[in-house]
Amino acid sequence: MQNESIYVLLADDDKDDRDFFIEAFESIRIKTIVKTVNDGVELMKHLALNRNKLPHILFLDLNMPLKSGMECLIEIKKTDYLNDMAIAIYSTSASEQDIENAFVNGANVYIKKPHDFATLKKFLEEVITINWQYQTSGLNRDSFLLNL
């Protein structure tokens, strides 16, 4: 377990945000494999086709064309084989309503996209480190809520 890489998947329609996200992971301490998809429809297809290799943690942008992050979250939580993934919402919105709805619908983490790269790196490292503790120390995922 300790030497295994963490598989991280991001669904975001903004190319710049995807690039920053990938770059931020290059310098954190825990070994990760990062993949991205461009929207919610592509995400759901990707998950269905890779049932045996699901991400340890999925980052979802809220505002995506075709299928929004919230729609994906709800669909994922209703699907048995997808229920074990940790889910982080990664959004430009920080409205109380969005945050609360995301958590109530089953998200574990809510991150407001920061404006500078250093903060992004810090946030992502924190999320991965805490998620890793949940994965390796038998903590109850249902109580894993983190708002950054």
Partner: peptide, 13 residues
């Protein structure tokens, strides 16, 4: 640790 107050955590759960 969580980014939430205990009251807010309780309400969400």
């Amino acid at each position: 640790v969580t980014g939430l107050t205990p009251t807010r955590y309780q309400r969400i759960i």
